[in-house]
Design a protein around this nucleic acid. Sequence first.
DNA 1: AACTCGTGGGG
DNA 2: TCCCCAAGAGT
Length: 354
Amino acid sequence: MQFNSITQKLHDWYGENKRLLPFRDTEDPYKIWLSEVMLQQTQVNTVLPYYNKWIKRFPTISSVANEKLDTVLKYWEGLGYYKRCINFYKAIRIIKDDFHCKIPNNRKNFILLPGVGEYTASAVLSIAFKKPYPVLDVNVKRVMSRMLGIKNLTRHNEKRIMVHLNKMIFKDNPGDFNQAMMDLGSLLCKSSNPLCSKCPLRTNCYAYRNNKSDKYPNKIKTKTLPHYDISIGIIWRENKFYIQKRNLKSMLGGLWEFPGGKIKPGESAKVALKREIREECGVSIKNINKIGIVKHSYSHFKITLYCFYCREKKDSLELNNNAKMITINEIKNFPFPKANHKIFELFKQSQFYV
DNA sequence: AACTCGTGGGG
DNA sequence: TCCCCAAGAGT
């Protein structure tokens, strides 16, 4: 292969710094695809344990397609952005029904699948099938922004960056090129405190030559997150408590939770809980005991959870398809969001847990 | 085109 | 403690 000097430097650097990640030590497009979905907005070290557990339980496409969504979601529990899992599951079902369990190796068909966008299509096709598609993730954007001195990552400027990437890409191994660019971005050309002295491309980098690495790319101002107060109840009947499944279309869709809801302005936490429990469980609760407070932060708002313990009379709760009474030992069978696990922990430390 | 969608780590 | 940030996609 003939490379220009920048591409040659990147190639040499990657040869010396290649990481042996489990999802890169394979040619199975299913495994590479899974890893790319897990890696969306999530760093490698966070993904590793989830990826390993998932592959052990679901080693093939058919092993996913033959399970129910609930079973699969449990293996995503804690990783966040659960729509990724739901879309991946939907896509796998389509692969089974329409493609005989074989992942399409052309971009037009692959990118039509739910949860597969520009990045994922390029990553999987380049790594698993050696197709010459450069990826443009947040790492590559940052590297190119600094190298070329492009401050604002507008759609127009991203197209300009893509023109460069298409010239730079290793024609014989596009997957290695994409991996090298992303590794360079995440290990050296970091968002804050970049390790420019170790960067093989520093003499070609506009931002480095002008001592302006921290100015590229432009930072976007973040809004302060709104805050909500929420009441939740752990409603017991004999040795079981009430949980309900969140609507698939909503935030945290498909996961289970304790009943409860937002406290209205001027409303007390206890009154709010009574109102919500009447609406959701069809009962009027009386024995309400305060357990404590849990704070949690989501991507676009924060909450304070006022947690209560309630003991109900036998056979008084309404149970539809999306509601269940379970024992403490059955928690492991249902996917819960992080906030609910915090509540479990609080409850276990309370006087009501025996 | 903005906004929604989780969670954990770092400064 | 609080804010920023992270291998994006759907709407």
